[in-house]
Design a binder for these strands. Structure first.
Lengths: 163, 163
DNA sequence: TCGAGATGCTTTAAGTCTAAAGGATTGTGC
DNA sequence: GCACAATCCTTTAGACTTAAAGCATCTCGA
């Protein structure tokens, strides 16, 4: 076998992995994420006249109760300025309510209104059905493997960010 | 074992899979994608003063030569209006050049300028290194498994979109 | 030929997102 | 007390993204 080829095959003998393989992995992961996001976003728009970021915001509040904007910002992994804008629009729609924290008046604490909680329940149920359908071709074993490997990947990504 | 629990365990006996498991899979996949995108986008900004969508645009041109804006739109899975704006900014920076197709004057054909090609090479090399570092905790076998499962997932997602 | 529909691109309005700068409030060291 | 830094949030400018409407061009059938 030639030592020097234009299209190197994957190194199967434990040598250093090729960067191209990582890039293929990255591309496939981002492609899957884009397919999910665009499809789910379209359905949220058509069915509930809302957006994915607003759903994520409401999901955090549904799960954790009242939160400061900073906590929401960290959970959604977005900037403070971003959650400020999202909170203003959600409040405008009457889906959340906010109040200045009594103990620290810098803090804005937000939570779902009863109407917001009701709307979120309906959205979450529909979302679960959409996602289930999108992964319907994968067996239970494949889902478990994928979940585990993505967890490994997540830790590798975080590790590289904060060594 | 009780038949009715508040926290149902995964169904290991081949019954219908639970929607919650799919949602966990979705969340983890989108989280990994977000971690990659935010980190890479930050480095593109700091190192090359550019953005991820512009890199993706240039990558398509580097790979396929001259393309119509519609072809770019389909490759990047974004709307036509989006690529119009990206192309205008890239042209402004002198990284791509465009010309009206001689055979069909509706078509705008774009390609990298020599300067654009040079810049892209440097960005691609850096990008490959960043990605390789981000996945460095995963073994070659794990990468292969993950790549294969993501391919299965991609086909399941596309299948659901166009049955 | 010529008109209707299809196709490719652009524009527009609105939402999402970031980095950077700024304002209000709190905590700390002296 | 009191300056000063840290923390929390908001504002701003700019980039990205979409859906929808609109313009230019092409194709095809009558």
């Amino acid at each position: 076998m030639p030592r020097d080829t234009r299209e190197p095959h994957p190194d199967k003998l434990g040598g250093a992995p090729h960067g191209k393989d990582s890039v293929r992995l990255e591309l496939r992961l981002l492609t899957c994420a884009a397919l999910i996001e665009r499809r789910i976003a379209g359905r949220f728009r058509d069915t509930f006249d809302t957006t994915l970021p607003r759903f994520d915001f409401m999901a955090a509040l549904d799960r954790h109760g009242a939160l400061s904007l900073g906590e929401v910002s960290r959970m959604l992994m977005v900037t403070n300025g971003n959650v400020t804008g999202l909170a203003q629009r959600l409040k405008q729609c009457g889906l959340i309510e906010s109040a200045t924290d009594a103990e620290d008046r810098r803090v804005q604490r937000v939570r779902l209104t009863p109407e917001g909680a009701r709307r979120f329940k309906a959205m979450a149920a529909a979302h679960e059905g959409w996602i289930e359908a999108m992964f319907s071709d994968l067996s239970a074993a494949e889902r478990e493997d994928l979940l585990r490997l993505l967890d490994r990947a997540k830790h590798s990504l975080r590790e590289e960010a904060h060594p």
